[in-house]
Design a protein around this nucleic acid. Sequence first.
DNA 1: ATCGGTATTGCACCTGGTCGCAATTATACT
DNA 2: AGTATAATTGCGACCAGGTGCAATACCGAT
Lengths: 139, 139
Amino acid sequence: MSCIKTLKEKGLKLTPQRRLIVDAIHDIDTNLTAEEIITHVQARMPEVHKSTIYRTLELLEKYGCVFKSEVGERSVYHHVDERHHHHHLVCSSCGKTIECDEDFFTNLEKSLAEKYGFNVDFKHIVMSGLCEKCKNKNK
Amino acid sequence: MSCIKTLKEKGLKLTPQRRLIVDAIHDIDTNLTAEEIITHVQARMPEVHKSTIYRTLELLEKYGCVFKSEVGERSVYHHVDERHHHHHLVCSSCGKTIECDEDFFTNLEKSLAEKYGFNVDFKHIVMSGLCEKCKNKNK
DNA sequence: ATCGGTATTGCACCTGGTCGCAATTATACT
DNA sequence: AGTATAATTGCGACCAGGTGCAATACCGAT
């Protein structure tokens, strides 16, 4: 429930709509499409407009409560786990998500910074590809 | 002009619209947004519908003539250079694109496959972040 | 408890991109 | 050159997501 606290600390208003959105992110999976959030929220409070939801999600991202990432065309939101950061590997065939440790990326991050002076923002990247099952399926 | 050859080889029709789209990809930058392509094509042939352009781009991607990648919300197309693959680092602040060698990613690719059995599809990833200049600007 | 100001909402509209469909056209065959 | 036919086009409708604006509601001060 730290999301609520974060909003309060920033002097933002705690509207019923926002509570519902925060609830959705906590209650359901950690891997939510915008559409799933909209459905969940509107099931309880049908008037809530999608733009309100997108705006709230944007806010929560801005204040570090959720991560937004693009998988294929759609946006997917991950509730931020304060204990440890991790990256996500999403299978483009079955949709399965694997959390992987951020250590894997630190080397790459470092060498790209050294060679090109470029600072990749890995927090906002979700890698897509094929998981083990789907890879073998296609053979 | 190998794109044209590729289309012919696949038994696809060579329409004036398609010629224009292929021209655009060759003539202009290697780093084109869909919108830039649409503008370029419609400047010469105004009736060409955006859906035709998107469909052709999809085809060209399918047959390996271009790479499509998502930067922020928009789609960006890169003309494929047959000589060597490389990855793209796009600065989210100034839009500058850096081509980087694929060797940087092979280690990461390998270790993710070993640890998680996951095969990241790096061909379709464009990393965003901050280039040297923009990073220093914000300080 | 109520009041005022600012944050937030819902709405209507916009944008990039996709899709089904009927009309058109590039090509292969005669 | 003329024709058959399957691929392709343009169109309009649609989708997810975003924006400006007027109306509303949260919350701190009274």
